[in-house]
Write a protein that binds this DNA or RNA. Sequence first.
DNA 1: GATACGGTTGAACAATTGCTCAACCGTACA
DNA 2: TGTACGGTTGAGCAATTGTTCAACCGTATC
Lengths: 137, 137
Amino acid sequence: MASAKKSVINLKDVRDDIFTDRCDCDVIHEDAVERARENMPNPEVQIGLAELFKVFGDPTRVRILCALRQGEMCVCDIAFLLGMTKSAISHQLRVLRQTNLVKYRKDGKTVYYSLDDDHVAEIIDVGAEHVKHTGAL
Amino acid sequence: MASAKKSVINLKDVRDDIFTDRCDCDVIHEDAVERARENMPNPEVQIGLAELFKVFGDPTRVRILCALRQGEMCVCDIAFLLGMTKSAISHQLRVLRQTNLVKYRKDGKTVYYSLDDDHVAEIIDVGAEHVKHTGAL
DNA sequence: GATACGGTTGAACAATTGCTCAACCGTACA
DNA sequence: TGTACGGTTGAGCAATTGTTCAACCGTATC
């Protein structure tokens, strides 16, 4: 839980999965497997991807990110906007902080949060485009 | 669970969250809240985003998608590549099918899976770029 | 100093989730 | 027809996760 690394997903476990052969079948198309193995992002990036998207994959967190995409806000503002408690929002902001998706600045009692990186907005936009395009709802 | 809609996240519950005021504080910056409320994607898109990213947010599923990004593969190939059982892979492929991220074709006993949409590859790429850029591991 | 308020935190609980296991379906081939 | 194999499925279990609740920290104001 409060492991040394901030990783939500245990990298070692996944590595074990990768290198321990638990497969219950033979390869049918060696060429396809070889092509995939060579061109896929390396395991570290794969796990990083899963961790990144996992954070985006919660309604509360993604709504917070959508809100912050429009400009910085304090915890109370976000709580009011989403109709949730400060505590619930603060817990999720902690996750977003630890994964470097938001940054913050303090001013007196107030803490202002904002997106940490242009990539974050970009990911939201690409995702939103897909959602609208497929109407997958 | 096996609800009428294929939604993993219950849209109605989130709507209730949105419109039921569970906030335990006052707005501090009305302008910021109003700006966010006006410019955020609508609730349907917000939930769609969370559902989409939730699917990407699992190591096994994202690795499957990374593999299929290099070309179509059958279940056995994927199982071998990831060192997992056909069953485990098949369960995850079902999720990917239901969310329209992969499509498939049958040929005899074999089922070939591939990405359903260019957006899927795009999302992987944008995410991978962010992961490499931040070194957030 | 006392009070109020923005914000954080940890424990606990309910809900969700991914894999395993065993059984099963369909197609191919002997 | 029987056997083998690719693939799917449902139940069950262990692990993870998001919210609530209560307590607490810091800063500002009286």
